[in-house]
Amino acid sequence: MTVRGLRPLSILSVVLVAVGFAMAFLYAPLDTDQGFRQKIFYLHVPIGIVALIGFVIGGIHGLRYLRGGGSEADLRSYVHIHQSQILAVSVLITGAIWGKTAWGAWWRWDEPFLVSFLIVFLLYCTYQPLRLSIDDPRRQARAASVFAVVAGAFVPINFAVVRMADAYLHPRTLSNAADGSMPTPVLVTFLTCLVAISVLYATLVRYEVLSKSTTFRLRALERRAGGDDLIPRRSAVPQA
């Protein structure tokens, strides 16, 4: 992993996020039903979509590791899950803020998307403790990769089941986009924000992969310089 391409990607992320937010506030019209609070969906929904895709990509890299992809695949699986966990917290927070303004309550149990996200978040909260509880780096990587595959498959099933069990309260952003009932400025703004968050996510993933692999190489050099006295620290981070 090299720094090449990281600077343009970072600049592109900043520009796209700035353009997305500017469009959300200046170009997209105010929603007739929800008014100003609907603007949070330009952040909440893209973050949610990208977080879920990130969890599934983490599972794909986990499968790559199991199929002999090497420690680089484990590192990528770890980083995708880690970044998606951060986005999942943002989804829960922005969803709760929207809920407070729309329903007068921070949390509603009959809102399937929020509940699904909470369950997924709860499951992925066990990822780091699982890694930390296994000392042997090879065994740790294998168990974490199996977890990533199982949890990646669990994400869509969980959403489907929770959605089946509850009535709809949450506005169906994607359904509106698919059936053409979403006005063009809203759709264009939403897609711009989705692309912006996706590029930002890809940038953050690259930064973290680079940072983790550099840290690991540095520690390996320190160990070589310091002799056998410096043993690797117990860590949830892959020893790539």
């Binding site: 403790p129 699982l130 509880s133 296994i134 000392d135 168990a143 199996v146 977890f147 199982v150």
Partner: peptide, 10 residues
């Protein structure tokens, strides 16, 4: 998954 984990019961 938890085979070999130190705190399996957790």
């Amino acid at each position: 998954i938890a085979i070999g984990a130190r705190s399996r019961e957790l």
